[in-house]
Design a binder for these strands. Structure first.
Lengths: 192, 192
DNA sequence: CCACCTGGTCAACGGCTGTTGACTTGACCG
DNA sequence: CGGTCAAGTCAACAGCCGTTGACCAGGTGG
């Protein structure tokens, strides 16, 4: 059972996610990840090609958002928040990506890609209007929640139970998705 | 005019803010800051005692929030957002603190302190209810905006003019400050 | 002229890191 | 048993970083 390359790979990847999520990109060392996985640093190199490769594979985030077509827009915030909390608490992938985005342009680009390929399309179905912008606003609130709660750890947000969190923030997400366009006289560019 | 310690200190501090804001804590090297300021790295040591000291003094954030007592609550979001955008764009202090918070517990603690000593007291005057929690929710949206716009750089948020930003996000801040308590049956602790 | 203090530089040390290439171990196969 | 190939280890290199202590420059006061 030992000497199982697939299992070892998975163990290294788990250790990497934990380290990247807890310490950020720069403070995470290949040596520490290897030690956590009970493996020689050189093996990490062989498997992932380098620190960048290790991060890329460790921070491959899949939000697994459901198809919202046919869902009443009022039910969307609950679904979204439940999904995000689940992702936050399942493993450290999201935190790894978030922490790394602060100091690595590559990670920030990956974050943008997660938004473009997963969040924006999912929300485009339920936002009547300027779907991309509304999706970005939703993302800003959710991202801010993650930062304030898990990164900065403001006590009055850490104390919130998941249900209360939904009750406080849900209406805001709904607002971002459905509120009438701001700016009384929209300078629409001809295309209507 | 050369050999002016005060001016040199200021030059180093400016360079440090720029570097910390652009690259984060770990990627910023004392050598690079010193080079930017046209100074020997050893001088930075003499003046600030080390990298931590340099960061602490460079990331000493003052939001300069106005006294909101006597302000109509509907006017608060505009004031707040204008202040935050001003702080974001004035210098790199806020970005330095935000980026560093992702990988340094010290920086995260400083962020918490900024909230506790500046944001929460300022908003306590206008939030009728659970002022600390409402202030934290406001902070989460503002922080999320900073992350999404300046760090992850979601295009549809980067494109927003300051005025439009206010129009989109203002109502949300107002909601966070004034919306009725969620949870139909509040488990109030005896005081009613 | 000399001493002195402040502002500033120089060269170096020690530690940690990513990365590499040669080596070892162990399981399977004929 | 002997060979072979993947899995894994070992020791080392080269580079960069924070930090240090000794040193230099130049204006000031006696």
């Amino acid at each position: 059972m030992t000497r199982d390359a697939t299992a070892t790979r998975a163990r290294v990847l788990d250790a990497a996610r934990a380290r990247f999520g807890a310490d950020g990109y720069d403070r995470t060392t290949i040596r520490a990840v290897a030690a956590d996985a009970g493996v020689d640093p050189a093996l990490v190199m062989r498997y992932f090609g380098g620190k960048d490769g290790l991060f890329t594979q460790a921070a491959d985030l899949d939000l697994d958002l459901p198809d919202l077509a046919g869902t009443a827009v009022d039910d969307v915030p609950a679904l979204l928040l439940e999904r995000f909390v689940a992702v936050w608490e399942r493993d450290a992938t999201f935190m790894a990506l978030l922490r790394a985005s602060a100091s690595s342009e590559t990670a920030a680009a990956r974050m943008r890609e997660v938004f473009t390929s997963q969040v924006a399309p999912a929300l485009a179905v339920v936002a009547v209007d300027q779907p991309d912008r509304r999706a970005a606003l939703v993302a800003s609130q959710v991202l801010g929640l993650a930062v304030a709660r898990y990164l900065v750890r403001l006590p009055s947000l850490v104390d919130l139970e998941t249900d209360d969190l939904l009750a406080w923030v849900g209406p805001v997400l709904l607002h971002h998705l459905t509120a009438p366009l701001p700016g009384g006289s929209p300078p629409a560019t001809g295309s209507s």
